[in-house]
Design a protein around this nucleic acid. Structure first.
Length: 458
RNA sequence: GAGGUUGUAGCUCAGUAGGUUAGAGCGUCUGAUUGUGGUUCAGAAGGUCGUGGGUUCGAAACCCAUCAUCCUCCCCA
């Protein structure tokens, strides 16, 4: 059979992996600076843990795992009945009890709900693991990709929104990715829905206005009408998303628009608080109010965030928000949450396109010992171990072939130093060191090798 | 779930008004070179032309199906 990969998945070569790890390290270090602690959850969850949490579209995109033992003759009839249900679009336990995780937020909520007795709240955790979606792959979209999430459970303080904004800003600054960090508040959108015929319009409105920067105002209006809003209501939405100016100007206009809506006023106050606090800090990638930002996931209840790379055509590379009753889905009431997520694979694509990965992260082997024969090999093994014990990554060429080949190996792997030790050098207690970057060569005392490599004097 | 693109050597790609034995560059291997590469030169290996069917005297090329790919929409990171 021809070897191949499942659709939407990728292998990662060392070059790619070093770049990805650079992103992981950067995010992780910032998370830890803010006191978040690591957590890992299983790749699979019970199907019922995930179903119904991401909307109808989301449910379709969850990878379900087929149960084992369906061929058990004793259960043949019930398996057939269960399968008929699947054909009607009704996923059920008889066919799939487990599914691959779709994001990191729901597993986190599940974890908090299961362990809230032991956790001291607020609980701040970060998680960096792959998630899977049965989506059609395309640019910036994979079926297996990594998310890096930082969430806080058990606190309604806006301090977390402020700090999460700072985390976003700090990570992208360290990575050198130019971004726009957008913020909005679901309570304001809620107030907008109230003005337009009631809260049940919320989803229709948010789905439509979320597309504003993609399809333009006219198409958004068309969509709103097709979703059942009348002309006056569409006009209200239009005046809402047309609000422009600085953050402060936008807030003032919102004050006017929602001066009689308690929830709306609360949302505006939250936004104002977060923005004014962030202004006191060194956040240099400014947080910007984006009133068309809605975010699809319907569990958000307060602040919502989205990060987009500027200057590169790519979907959002991060998102998040507050969900005041997440663990409620698992029967534990009263635990609020707020969190953000980084889409590592898209960040990678953006950085690769911009060519902004630092050169220094591609360091692999430092020294290659040439192989000049089995007698010399024993001697070289000892020297290599000594270098390794000093933290210098060292390889010995695997066979005593012509130097031509050994040089090519070093070149291909970008190994800067080649050390040649033959019978002459062993006798003299020296070694020949060649710097391939500078094309220089010196013979030095074998005992000085490690020291001089570490001092970079070769 | 809907629409489109592409599929030829390990990689990047040529190649068709349908015609003998399918090409190039890069890479790989061998030699020129018994301990000093990257240049050069000579040579070699490597292809069920995605798969299956059809049209034809004849198909990599035309038609149909299928699989894969990348992209767009939906939705999202």
């Amino acid at each position: 059979m021809k070897p191949s990969l499942p659709q939407g998945t990728r292998d990662f070569s060392s070059t790619v992996l070093r770049k990805r790890n650079f992103i992981f390290q950067t995010i992780k270090s910032v998370f830890e600076l803010y006191g978040f602690e690591p957590l890992e959850t299983p790749a699979m969850e019970n199907t019922e843990t995930l179903l119904g949490k991401y909307g109808d579209e989301g449910d379709k995109l969850i990878f379900k795992i087929l149960n084992n033992g369906l061929d058990n003759p004793a259960k043949k009839e019930s398996a057939k009945a269960d399968f008929d249900l699947v054909l009607e679009g009704k996923t059920n336990k008889g066919i799939t009890e487990r599914a691959l995780r779709y994001d990191l937020t729901i597993p986190f909520a599940r974890y908090v709900a299961m362990n809230h007795g032991q956790l001291s709240l607020p609980f701040k955790r970060y998680q960096m693991q792959p998630v899977w979606r049965a989506d059609r792959p395309q640019r910036g979209r994979y079926r297996e990709f990594y998310q890096c999430d930082a969430d806080v459970a058990g606190s309604t303080s806006l301090l977390h929104e402020i700090e999460l904004s700072l985390i976003y800003s700090s990570v992208f600054e360290k990575l050198g990715v130019p971004v726009a960090i957008n913020i909005n508040n679901r309570k304001i959108l809620n107030a907008l829905a109230n003005l337009c015929g009631g809260e049940d319009r919320m989803t229709s409105i948010t789905v439509a206005i979320d597309k504003l920067d993609k399809i333009g105002i006219e198409k958004v209006k068309e969509e709103l009408i097709s979703r059942g809003l009348n002309i006056e209501q569409v006009a209200i939405v239009e005046s809402f998303i047309s609000i422009e100016g600085s953050n402060e100007e936008k807030l003032e206009k919102l004050d006017e628009m929602f001066n009689s809506d308690e929830i709306g006023k609360q949302g505006i106050a939250e936004l104002r608080h977060i923005l004014s606090a962030v202004q006191q800090t060194t956040l240099n990638q400014q947080l910007v109010i984006d009133l068309s930002l809605a975010r699809g996931l319907n569990y958000y209840t307060g602040s919502i965030f989205e990060v987009k790379a500027t200057g590169v055509q790519m979907g959002s590379i991060g998102g998040g928000g507050r969900y005041d009753d997440l663990t409620g889905l698992f029967g534990v009431k009263g635990i609020a949450g707020v969190g953000i997520s980084f889409g590592v694979d898209r960040i990678y694509d953006v950085m690769d396109e911009l060519g902004i990965f630092p050169e220094s992260i591609q360091k692999g082997t430092t020294v290659l010992f040439f192989n000049t024969g089995s007698e010399e090999e024993k001697h070289i093994l000892k020297m290599a171990q000594e270098l390794r014990s000093k933290g210098i990554s060292t390889e010995i060429f695997h066979e005593a072939t012509k130097f031509d080949k050994q040089f090519k190996y070093a070149e291909r792997k970008n190994i800067p130093y080649v050390v040649i030790i033959g019978s002459k050098e062993i006798e003299a207690g020296t070694c020949m060191v060649k710097n391939l970057l500078k094309s220089t060569q010196v013979e030095i005392n074998a005992s000085e090798l490690a020291q001089r490599l570490m001092e970079n004097k070769l």
